[in-house]
């Protein structure tokens, strides 16, 4: 029972702290393309655990700036890689968390905004980079980044909202693109995008009921959540499903006690960190989504997290709300 399990806060903090010191590891080089995302995940987990100072702020900011891709005017995951929307959002999230968006300067900010807007396609969707991989993740990413920068416009928002609504499926879920199978991560990106755009009212009451049903249907009798019907549970869905339910005001349709127990069972009691399911290898991705899920359920006075932005509420409360007055 969850009564006997507790969140090993200190161990998780030490685990995240240790990640960036493993540069001798081949894995480290193979995951260059995720480095900036990884730092965002680590920093956000540390914030939820009330220990942001574990990372040295100046060093992180300086690394973020070193990932600036001057050719395309946005952020790459690692110095000399190509700019990409996903890493651009991570960069903006990290800087906003540190209340340091000013370090961008006017020129970089202007180019960044034009990079994001420039990746929007005719149907309102976004491509991740100029190569053209399209899905609802990128719609969320673009709207979230622009929102954090306070630069949403109806020219961007309205077609993006139309696209997101086309990804709604007959079963109450959302897919990666129109017609694609419903997937819990896509529920978050679609509902998050609508929430940022202040357009949740485009969904009817019946649709919200269906969405809530599809989301809470992800909870398995043993407590964990899966991403699609008849799939295995995975800790990361503690974030994708819970944040989605929180956005539509139906968080209590999940059984907290059982889910909490499942997340806590996925902790590595020796070295810290959280894995996808019990007994598996931990990583920073599942660690942040595990603690963020626990925060949404109000577990143990964790620092409150914003279900729309996946950032501390103390940070997001300062964002300008769209439509701007």
């Amino acid at each position: 029972m969850s009564g006997s399990l507790t969140l090993l806060k200190e161990k998780h903090i030490r685990y995240i702290e240790s990640l960036d010191t493993k540069k001798h590891n081949f894995e480290y080089w193979l995951t260059e393309h995720l480095r900036l995302n990884g730092i965002y995940w680590g920093l956000t987990a540390l914030c939820v655990l009330d220990s942001p100072e574990t990372f040295v702020k100046e060093e992180v900011i300086s690394f973020v700036l070193s990932c600036w891709d001057d050719k395309y005017g946005a952020f790459a995951p690692f110095p000399r890689h190509d700019a990409h929307l996903l890493t651009t959002l991570s960069a903006v999230q990290i800087l906003a968390t540190y209340d340091a968006l000013d370090v961008l300067g006017k020129d970089r900010k202007v180019r960044l905004i034009s990079f994001i807007r420039g990746n929007q396609l005719e149907d309102g969707s976004f491509q991740g980079d100029r190569f053209g991989e399209v899905d609802t993740r990128f719609v969320y990413t673009a709207l979230s980044a622009l929102s954090i920068l306070g630069e949403l416009t109806s020219e961007v928002v309205d077609p993006a909202v139309d696209f997101v609504l086309k990804c709604y499926n007959f079963d109450g879920g959302f897919g990666l693109c129109p017609n694609a199978e419903s997937h819990a991560a896509q529920a978050f990106t679609c509902l998050g995008a609508l929430a940022i755009a202040n357009k949740l009212d485009m969904l009817s009451d019946d649709q919200l009921e269906e969405i809530g049903w599809w989301l809470c249907e992800r909870q398995l009798p043993e407590g964990g959540l899966n991403g699609r019907p008849s799939k295995l549970p995975d800790v990361c869905y503690s974030w994708w499903v819970l944040s989605s339910l929180a956005i539509i005001g139906r968080l209590d349709w999940i059984n907290y006690e059982k889910l909490t127990e499942f997340i806590l069972k996925c902790q590595d009691e020796k070295k810290g960190g959280i894995s996808d399911r019990p007994e598996n290898e931990v990583d920073v991705f599942h660690t942040v989504f595990g603690v963020a899920g626990l925060s949404l359920m109000g577990y143990d006075n964790l620092v409150p997290i914003d279900p729309i932005y996946c950032m501390p509420k103390s940070v997001t409360s300062k964002f300008k709300k769209y439509p701007y007055k």
Binding site: K23, H24, N25, F26, W29, L30, E32, P79, R80
Partner: peptide, 19 residues
């Protein structure tokens, strides 16, 4: 790749090739 780090011996061949 910019790095001032020393590689672990057991990884060095693979890593060098990749680099």
């Amino acid at each position: 790749i910019e790095t001032d780090l020393q590689d672990e011996l057991c990884r060095i061949m693979y890593t060098e090739d990749y680099k």
